[in-house]
Simulated assay, not measured.
Amino acid sequence: MTENQIANKIIGCALEVHKALGPGLLESAYQECLFYKLMKEGLAVAKQKPMPLIFEEVQLEIGYRIDILVENKVVIEIKSVEALNDVHLAQTLTYMKLGGFKLGLLINFNVSLLKQGIKRVINGEL
C-alpha cells in the first residue's frame, strides 16, 4: 500500500471520528479513537512511537514521540488547538526527518469542518 493510499484511509477514519465526537476534546481522546478506527481497518498502527535523535554516533532518547505511525510509513500528528501554526508543522517535519518518513498528516480536530484542519506534510519525493 502506498503512502497516498494509507493517507486516504487515515483521512476517512479521521472524518468518522470527528463526525462522532466533534471539536473541543483533548488531543488524547482523538488519538485513542483514531488509533482504534485505524486498527479496525486492519492497518498496522503504533501509538506514541518513540523517535530517538541520532547526533554523530550518539543515539539520544530524549522523549520525541510520534502520535500515531501507520504501516511504518505515514506519521500522524494530532492537535486540538484554535489554529495550526508553524511550530506544529515543524514538529511533524522533525518526526518525519528523524524516521525517514515521506508523508505526514497534521490533523487539528478542534475545527467545525475537519477538512479545514488537515494538512499533508511531504518530506522529499513521493
Rank of each mutant, 00 (worst) to 15 (best):
M1Q: 09
T2L: 05
E3S: 14
I6L: 00
A7T: 11
K9Y: 05
I10F: 01
I11K: 03
C13W: 00
C13R: 01
L15Y: 13
A20R: 04
G22E: 06
G24N: 04
L26T: 03
E27H: 07
A29D: 13
Y30F: 05
Y30L: 02
E32T: 08
F35P: 00
Y36A: 05
Y36V: 02
M39A: 13
K40C: 01
E41F: 01
G42E: 07
L43C: 04
V45E: 06
K47R: 12
K47A: 09
K47I: 11
K49E: 15
M51R: 06
L53G: 03
L53A: 14
I54Q: 12
F55S: 02
F55H: 07
V58A: 09
L60F: 11
L60K: 15
I62E: 03
I62H: 13
G63A: 12
Y64T: 12
Y64D: 04
R65N: 12
I66E: 02
D67F: 06
I68F: 05
L69F: 03
L69C: 00
N72I: 09
N72G: 12
K73N: 06
K73R: 12
V74H: 12
V74E: 04
V74A: 04
V74G: 09
V75M: 10
E77F: 06
E77T: 11
E77C: 08
K79P: 03
V81S: 13
V81W: 03
E82Y: 02
E82T: 14
A83D: 13
N85W: 12
N85A: 15
H88N: 05
L89T: 13
A90D: 07
A90T: 11
G99L: 11
G99F: 14
K102Q: 13
K102P: 10
L103I: 13
L103R: 06
L105Y: 15
L105W: 07
L106W: 02
I107N: 08
I107L: 08
N110D: 08
L113R: 09
L114T: 02
K115S: 08
Q116T: 10
G117C: 02
R120M: 01
R120H: 09
I122C: 09
I122G: 06
N123M: 04
N123K: 07
E125W: 05
L126I: 09
